[in-house]
């Protein structure tokens, strides 16, 4: 599956993550200050998720720092019937992923670094000129 050429649109990158990881249902790309960039969503309200993602990752980072457990990798909220994961995309953006109860977490952790890198590259042109 990894031989698939990386998609070159932001929505394509998000949809590709949903294709590759069983249980990923929706995702939102937002800025660190809580603004929506692009979303691959179905039921969630993208703007609300974007705003909460910034707060979630901020609190997660501070918690990691306070607890002295190294740099934050991702924030995983395990819930009654699913998961919400927030991960940083470079310094300026955040990716929030909603997964169902059967989310293949191992596959997510294997596939998400590539997705984050693709998103980082796609966003790099924002400040390139």
């Amino acid at each position: 599956m990894t031989e698939i050429p990386p998609p070159d649109s932001l929505t394509g990158i998000l949809a590709s993550l949903r294709e590759r990881v069983m249980g990923v249902s929706e995702s939102v790309l937002s800025t660190v200050d809580g603004l929506l960039v692009v979303a691959d969503t179905d039921t969630v309200h993208p703007e609300s998720v974007a705003a909460l993602a910034a707060a979630t990752l901020g609190v997660g980072r501070r918690m990691a720092e306070t607890a002295g457990v190294g740099a934050l990798r991702e924030v995983v909220a395990r819930c009654g019937s699913g998961h919400v994961i927030v991960v940083a995309v470079g310094d300026r953006a955040l990716l929030t992923v909603k997964g169902d109860d059967g989310l293949d977490l191992a596959a997510f952790q294997r596939e998400s670094p590539a997705t984050v890198e693709q998103l980082t590259k796609a966003l790099a042109s924002d400040v390139a000129h």
Binding site: I4, P5, P7, S9, T11, S16, V37, V38
Partner: peptide, 24 residues
């Protein structure tokens, strides 16, 4: 279809280098 729908994005896209399909 495995591609996302044509939702507009506020972020710039990389110059068109090939297909936009996400996966075969």
């Amino acid at each position: 279809r495995t591609t996302a729908d044509g939702r507009p994005s506020t972020a710039p896209r990389v110059p068109q280098a090939g297909a936009t399909t996400a996966a075969p």
